[in-house]
């Protein structure tokens, strides 16, 4: 039996207000336990697609289903417990420590006064451990390097305990060993935590090596294929240097 469908797009059309769409409507399913690489040239709509899937930008037309229900029908907090978008650009909050930042991931679970339980603290510790940021947990976020920040952003989403994890170019600021470690970690998430992960990246090498499927936005179309076949099917043609 096929794994649970976590996220399902039907004739989805994404874009920013005014009805202008970035590429043709498409169907797509994300299942538990799979890692999908999202590729395409700058400005093709990868980020907008991810924002739409996270419910931060309304779709132009079509439907997105999260755990079987339309994305918009979820309450804000319920949605935040299921889907999280990790972005690398974020204003550096002055004075906030890494631990406090990662702790924000527990916000969708907290009560009225944003309190934290011992269980929350344990989950935050675990999230920091698995993303290898525990060693600078008490440092102010604003003093971190870009690479360190990337991991802290990821740690926050891990603390959020989502089952659909969307990442927007997470290895943009990472060196090669760290990028490897990141993709290995994402593999571990999909295999052990039953998560479904969509990660946008410019690295064909990592996409082919670590992802189950590769989705490409090219020439106004969204196409997806198993990672091992993507190259033969011509999905990666746009990435060739002429």
């Amino acid at each position: 039996m096929a794994a649970d469908v976590l996220l399902k797009c039907e004739k989805l059309c994404v874009g920013y207000g005014g009805g202008s769409t970035l590429f043709e409507p498409f169907d797509f399913e994300l299942r538990a336990g799979e890692l999908v690489g999202l590729m395409g040239v700058n400005g093709c709509g990868k980020s907008t697609l991810l924002k739409t899937l996270a419910g931060l930008v309304p779709q132009v037309s079509g439907n997105v289903f999260l755990d079987g229900s339309p994305l918009q029908s979820w309450g804000a907090r319920e949605r935040a417990r299921r889907v999280g978008l990790v972005r690398m650009s974020g204003s550096a909050p002055d004075r906030m420590t890494v631990r406090e930042f990662v702790g924000l991931g527990r916000s969708p679970y907290s009560g009225f006064l944003d309190g934290r339980t011992a269980e929350d603290e344990r989950i935050v510790d675990d999230a920091m451990q698995v993303t290898d940021v525990s060693c600078f947990a008490e440092r102010p976020f604003s003093e971190l390097s870009d690479g360190e920040r990337s991991r802290v952003f990821l740690a926050e989403a891990v603390a959020q305990q989502v089952n659909v994890l969307l990442l927007d170019e997470p290895n943009a600021f990472l060196d090669i060993p760290r990028s490897h470690a990141l993709f290995r970690l994402l593999r571990k998430f999909v295999e052990t935590r039953e998560m479904g992960v969509v990660v946008s990246t410019h690295s064909v090498e990592y996409a082919e090596k670590f992802c189950d499927r590769i989705a490409v936005i090219d020439g106004g179309r969204f196409r997806v294929a198993p990672a091992s076949e993507a190259r033969n099917l011509g999905l990666l043609d746009w990435a060739r240097a002429e």
Binding site: R77, R79, G84, L104, G105, P108, F112
Partner: peptide, 23 residues
């Protein structure tokens, strides 16, 4: 005080707060 969850996330920007399920 009733907006505590928002206040704690607000310094990271509206989009980030939305991602945490804050209205």
């Amino acid at each position: 005080v009733v907006s505590m969850r928002y206040l704690n996330a607000a310094r990271l920007g509206d989009d980030f707060a939305r991602g945490l399920g804050v209205r």
